[in-house]
Design a protein around this nucleic acid. Structure first.
Lengths: 210, 210
DNA sequence: GACAAAACAGGACAACCGGTCTGTTTATAA
DNA sequence: TTATAAACAGACCGGTTGTCCTGTTTTGTC
């Protein structure tokens, strides 16, 4: 054992001018393109050009287009739902408050951008759920985690004496369905007002009346 | 003016063994395929084979694939929404009753089939809204007609002394968004229970509580 | 029957897509 | 230094797609 001490961690290679790896760049471009043009509407050639990546590099990190799609779903879409929905709801004073905050934040964001791309999860769910069982399973997992997080928040509120008289599972289903459908309508109409209308009609405001 | 009286209407020709026209056959096949495999996922070759139509015939009735897509949206999807939603709601005793009936009918149908294809309008809306302005406009028209029909039913109920305390526009937005989102979740989970959960959480039952 | 236009049939084509293949560079370990 | 394998580069190929083009048949009009 006259060899020197290893000074680099095996498996953690870094490129000269690419400290974070080319894989991340591809995922960034793919995530954006899948949302705007869909999975089938995004060709690998387009992604390669947009990311500045050669065909060999892309094939090295993602052997097939399906592998890239699954990576986007598992790593990016799931993270987006966790960041924009699950986190804020769990951090809010109550489930109802959290839902209202997220709806308002989403509407504000859409109006600020002036362009509605839709919900990443729903966009891919519609296109890929019936096309491939693996895609469907990956998307269903995200929906389930989303629902369970909201339902669990309601149960926690109820143990603290709040949110009486509502069914956790039903509330979670209603909230997610309404949000998804409202984003679908907003995307088609290219207008965010329907999101605020749905929020006002939901039983999360002062007067739950529709 | 010695000519005889015309005895046939110009432009209303009929084929020998095709009394209803080949155009209808193509629309039937395209409508079904677009819903299951999407617009981009349905190749003209597949449609030609499924409909038993030659390329020349298809090109004669629909010069481009986009023309076929617009025809499916304008003639079939709009009609489907009118038949399964607008009609039953207008015929019901009240808007709330109508919504509940349609939700239950949809859930029954899904459970009977054992397979969830999703809402035709939403499926195409997600795939085509951002892809083409003409598609988006056609789909937005259907959404708008859907919303206005439900809102108008609520207003009619209110003039008859019912459905007090609810905003017609908000109610319509909530109902359609919830239905669309619930169908999206049902499609991804391949299960119809979420539809019944959303119905129970909607303010159309005896106890509107979520 | 003669003529014109619509309604089809079916092949051909250029463009594109996803995947594969063979090199070349770079980093790690001995 | 040298061996080794990962990280890329870039050309290539078979298959598919949407569209177009040229014939042939049917339908309606004079």
């Amino acid at each position: 054992m006259t060899a020197e001490i290893v000074r680099t961690i095996p498996g953690a290679q870094k490129r000269t001018n690419d400290p974070e790896g080319m894989r991340k760049k591809v995922l960034d471009v793919a995530e954006a393109s899948f949302q705007e043009k869909g999975y089938h509407g995004s060709s690998l050639g387009d992604l390669m050009a947009a990311a500045g990546v050669s065909g060999g590099a892309l094939h090295h990190h993602f052997p097939t287009k399906k592998a890239l799609g699954l990576a986007v779903i598992d790593e990016r879409v799931a993270e987006a739902v966790a960041k924009t929905w699950i986190g804020p709801v769990l951090a809010a004073a109550s489930a109802r408050d959290g839902v209202r905050l997220v709806f308002e934040a989403a509407a504000d964001e859409l109006e600020k951008q002036g362009f509605v791309r839709g919900c990443p999860l729903n966009n891919l769910a519609h296109e890929l759920s019936l096309a491939d069982p693996d895609f469907r399973a990956a998307l269903a997992r995200i929906f389930r985690a989303w629902r369970e997080a909201i339902a669990e928040k309601v149960r926690a509120d109820q143990q603290n004496g709040g949110e009486k008289g509502i069914d956790p599972e039903r509330f979670a289903a209603l909230v997610i369905a309404t949000y998804s459908g409202a984003m679908s309508m907003a995307k088609t109409a290219q207008e965010a007002t329907v999101l605020r209308q749905c929020l006002a009609a939901l039983p999360v405001s002062g007067q739950p009346a529709a």
